[in-house]
Deep mutational scan, measured.
Amino acid sequence: ETIMEVNLLKGPKGLGFSIAGGIGNQHIPGDNSIYITKIIEGGAAQKDGRLQIGDRLLAVNNTNLQDVRHEEAVASLKNTSDMVYLKVAKP
């Protein structure tokens, strides 16, 4: 597993990826991690090219996303300014 830091500039459609996982909404049984499950065509993440489906999202800005509820992860992604710092684990 490789840890990678990505600074992503939000586009008109936001960050351009979808997530799944978290406490109460496990993407993988027994694993509370938050995973990237979709990269949106023409979105910021696709244009940047570094994020991939299956990457594990560890942090957004200063918010640690390990062992959080799905709703908390979504809220932390929404409550960001235009430049967003992401910390991901690549499988």
Rank of each mutant, 00 (worst) to 15 (best):
E1I: 15
E1G: 05
T2A: 06
T2F: 15
I3D: 08
E5S: 09
V6P: 01
V6H: 02
N7V: 04
L8Q: 01
L9E: 11
L9I: 10
L9C: 08
L9S: 14
K10M: 07
K10F: 06
G11D: 14
G11C: 13
G11N: 14
P12S: 06
P12A: 12
P12K: 09
K13Q: 07
G14D: 06
G14P: 05
G16V: 00
F17D: 00
S18G: 09
I19N: 00
I19K: 00
I19Y: 06
I19P: 01
A20C: 10
A20T: 10
G21F: 02
G21L: 02
G22E: 02
G22M: 02
G22Y: 02
G22Q: 02
G22H: 03
I23K: 15
G24D: 10
G24N: 14
G24Y: 09
N25R: 11
Q26C: 15
H27G: 05
H27M: 05
H27R: 09
I28N: 10
I28Y: 12
I28T: 14
I28D: 10
P29H: 12
P29K: 09
P29Y: 13
P29N: 15
G30I: 03
G30S: 13
D31S: 09
D31Q: 06
N32H: 10
N32T: 13
N32I: 03
I34D: 00
I34L: 09
Y35M: 07
I36W: 00
T37K: 07
I39F: 08
I39H: 01
I39W: 03
I39V: 10
I40P: 08
I40W: 07
I40S: 14
I40K: 11
E41N: 14
G42S: 13
G43T: 13
G43M: 11
G43L: 07
G43A: 10
A44K: 11
A44L: 11
A44M: 12
A44W: 04
A45M: 05
A45H: 01
A45L: 04
A45R: 00
K47F: 05
K47S: 12
D48K: 02
G49L: 06
G49W: 02
R50F: 05
R50D: 09
R50W: 04
R50Q: 15
L51I: 13
L51R: 00
L51V: 12
Q52I: 10
Q52N: 13
I53W: 06
I53P: 10
G54W: 04
G54C: 04
D55W: 14
D55C: 12
R56P: 01
L57V: 11
L57R: 00
L57W: 00
L58Y: 10
A59P: 00
A59N: 12
V60N: 01
V60E: 00
N61E: 15
N62E: 09
N62R: 10
N62S: 14
N62W: 04
N62A: 12
T63G: 07
L65G: 00
L65Q: 03
L65P: 00
L65C: 09
Q66F: 10
Q66R: 07
D67R: 10
R69T: 07
R69C: 11
R69K: 12
H70M: 10
E71V: 14
E71S: 15
E71F: 03
E72Q: 08
A73N: 00
V74M: 04
V74L: 12
V74H: 12
A75Y: 06
A75F: 15
S76L: 11
L77A: 01
L77F: 11
K78N: 15
N79F: 09
N79D: 15
T80N: 15
T80L: 14
S81W: 07
S81P: 07
S81I: 13
S81V: 07
D82V: 07
D82S: 12
M83C: 15
M83L: 09
L86F: 07
K87E: 06
V88P: 00
A89M: 13
K90H: 05
K90R: 05
K90F: 02
K90D: 03
